[in-house]
Each structure stands twice: as C-alpha cells, then as structure tokens.
Design a protein around this nucleic acid. Sequence first.
DNA 1: CGGTGGTTTGATCAAAATCAAGTGAGGTGG
DNA 2: CCACCTCACTTGATTTTGATCAAACCACCG
Lengths: 239, 239
Amino acid sequence: MAHEHFLRRLQIHSAMAEDDLRALQDLPIQVRSLGPNAPIVSEGNRPTQCCQMIAGYAVRSKIVETGRRQILSIHIPGDIPDLQSLYLEVMDCDLRTLGPATVGLISHESLRRLNRANPKVAEALWRDTLIDASIFREWIANVGLRPALRRVAHFIAELCHRMRRMGLMAGDTLELPMTQADLADACGLTAVHANRILLALRTEGIVDFRRNQLKVSDEARLRQLGGFDALYLHQSPDL
Amino acid sequence: MAHEHFLRRLQIHSAMAEDDLRALQDLPIQVRSLGPNAPIVSEGNRPTQCCQMIAGYAVRSKIVETGRRQILSIHIPGDIPDLQSLYLEVMDCDLRTLGPATVGLISHESLRRLNRANPKVAEALWRDTLIDASIFREWIANVGLRPALRRVAHFIAELCHRMRRMGLMAGDTLELPMTQADLADACGLTAVHANRILLALRTEGIVDFRRNQLKVSDEARLRQLGGFDALYLHQSPDL
DNA sequence: CGGTGGTTTGATCAAAATCAAGTGAGGTGG
DNA sequence: CCACCTCACTTGATTTTGATCAAACCACCG
C-alpha cells in the first residue's frame, strides 16, 4: 500500500479521525521507481505535484557560488520532501534520490482541494512543514557551532531516531546508500575529513558506517556526543 | 496602526482580497514595548499567542551543549517570528529582542479561528511559514559552506534586501542594534573573528558597521560576495 | 571618576581544508 | 577469465582558516 508510511508519518505528530485518514488514503497517487542519484525536482522548477517517499532515501540540497554542495535534509519513507512546493511556486533547492528509491506523486491540485475541504488534514500537513522547518533550525545550529565529530554524531543520531520511529530500523544496523562525500555535504565538511571522523567513530566503538551499512553500537553515546534531544522533532508526547 | 507592517509583509508573497485584509485587520492585538535583549518566548515554553514585530528587531536562537549560541533567524517589523507555535505545541528555540522593540501579541485562538473561516488567509500564513523554512535552508548552506567573509556578506545582504522591501531602509544606512558578538552568533563565528571580518569589509569599502549603524557603500559587491540571490525569499514576481 | 560592555589588536593554537598518492572492490569489455 | 577502469575510500603531509588566549582601548553611564 503506497499510503501506509505516509499515514503513519502524519500520525506521529497529528491525531486524526477515521474519515480524515480515509480522505488522505483516497488521494490519487502515481507510483514511480527511480534509480540512484536521480533528480526528482531541481532549483528553479515549478512543480505541479508533491513527491512522497515510499521506499529509499532522498536529499534536498543547494549548490553555492563556490561550487560546493550542501545537503539540507535527508528524507525517509513517509516524508514528503517537497511539500513546501504546494504553496511556494518555485523550488529553491534540488531534490534527488540517494540510492534507488520509489516515490509516489500526488498532484498539487488534489492536495489543495483536500486542504480546503478538510481543515484537520490541512492542519496536519501544515504541521508537517513546520516540523520540517524545526529540523532546519536544528541543522543550522549543528553546522554552525558543533565541531565535526559531534556534528556527524548528531546527523546519525537524528536519522536513527526517525527511522526507528517509523519502524524502519529494528536492530542496530541500517542499509544506508550514502557515500562519505554525501555525508560530508550534509555536515558541511570535506569528504576527506568526513572519512577521518568516521574512522574515529569506528575506533571509539560508537558507529561503524561502511559499504552502505550503518551499524550503531553505542546509541546512547552517539546521542550524547551529538547533543541530540528529540524535542525539535515535535512528535506527540506518547511516542 | 499596529497591523500596517504585518499586512504589507503578507502581501509581498500572497495576493489577498479586500475582505481577507479586513479579516486580518480585525484580529485583536495587544501591543507591548520591550527593552533590549528581552526574552519573548523560550525553548520549552508552550505559548498561547503569536508575536508580531511592530518596531525593532528580534532573533531566534538555540544554545547547544557546548554552551555556544546560534542565532537561527533575524526578524524585522512585519514578521511573525513564532508563527510556527500556532501548530507546534512547544518552542524548540528561544526568541528575544535585539534592541528595544515593540511587538503585537495575537492569540492562537483567534488566529486558528480565522484560519478555519478563511482559507485564503490560512494559505497566506502557511506560505509565510514556508518562506521562513526557505530562509533556514539558505542559512544552512550559508553557515555550512561559505567562508567567514562571504558568510557575513550574505547575512547583511539578506537583511538589507528584506528591510528595503518593507520600506524600512531608504538610503544606504540602517540603525541596527546588534553587537559584533550577535553577528558572530548568527554566522557561526567567534566575536573576535567577526570583528576582523567587519574590518575587512570596511577597508574594502563594502560595508561599515559600527556603533549600531550599518552603512552599505557597495551593495552590488556585497551581494556578489555573499552569493545572494533573492529567489529563496519567494516574493511575488512583480516586486 | 571608576565601572562595564563592546570593540580592537596581537600572538598562539587547533581544526579542518587542501594537496597528493595510494588501495580496494565492483563492473565492463576484450 | 582477466585486464582495465572507475568510483569510493584511505592515508599522509602541508597549509589555511578560524578559535583561543590575553591585553588594551573606548565610549557611555551611574
């Protein structure tokens, strides 16, 4: 079922009644499989649909004048990484897959109609974009003032928390098709330095990330190192 | 009139009909004067109202485990820096004034009621929070991968653009009650280094920021240096 | 007049970038 | 099946950027 993760995602922060859920489930969705590193939408585009992650990962990113790339967010199944495009005409960043991924496309038109018809759903989607913004705030602080080791730790801690919460990470390992250069771009580091940080985390016995396999041996220390506190993810209190 | 800047602000990105504007104007608002560096809301709070800037500046910020502070955004008259609190229960960052400021408080209840009654207005406010998020994205890229000089240049270029657009900056100077330490916190630098960067910008004849007075002598070079492109501010095309 | 908070300057240090050269695994075509 | 290629990763040496430490300086204020 294409909507399964999506509904779970929204219910993490917004309580909804049966008919709200049904209305969401009735949204027409067009499923598409994408290869690794495939563009979904790019800066300057004017999309007419939103993209919901069904399987795999995607990242939003920007290129600055010096040619370097910054990853702004990472997205997991259930996320709608470009929900902002529903009310912002033009994309201000790129969105592309990390590994192979499958996404569901939902037209702006059907989403806007649903928003007008169902304020509860509109509120949930709005809240979703607000949490998106909250994560950006945390990332500004992360790249702005944490040293590299803590910065990488925070990134991994957040990812694990979000994956676990969606039931997508059972034990302590995760399939994560991300190169060290990608990780570097997400943390505002160079690939070389990211490599050394990963080595440090490995020898410390905290996390081992190699060959697209992430193994978290000491999640408590990881969180503590990264100063990770899930408050900014705004999940409902009983989760 | 307390709503003046606020309405202008919303109309920068959202076209609204007469009665939408009137509905906004009818929102009950409680005006309050604040001293410099005064807290408005803090991380962990559960506010029941939003704060609209009428005069002066405010910043949102976070403190991380190492004790350092990161400024996440700067707010000018017309902004609603904590609009996100309308649908996010608990504050994930602090909000405080920079210099003396006057703000207008609007209850969540009245805003939520207006949102339900008037979808056009709800859409405008939603869009406002989406632009807020877009600015965060730009800031992640700014602190993540620009060297200090460009970073400060981008910060100042953005501020000038936003002020000018609101009709709050006529010539090339601006009253800006911000210390060099504040500027450093906004750019993820130390105060000492921020000082040296400001010196460089001054001797280059680009901007002169001293004693709360910002003078922009060469805005073109400032923008070019900071790689500033207003796209991410999502103003309507005719502005 | 002496505080105090903000700014300036200098000297030193540490973190991360850059430059450079490998290694190693997987994939393709001869 | 092997040779070769490419891309990701690794490691070392060096340089740059910005942080840290320390000490003045300055303006404003009580």
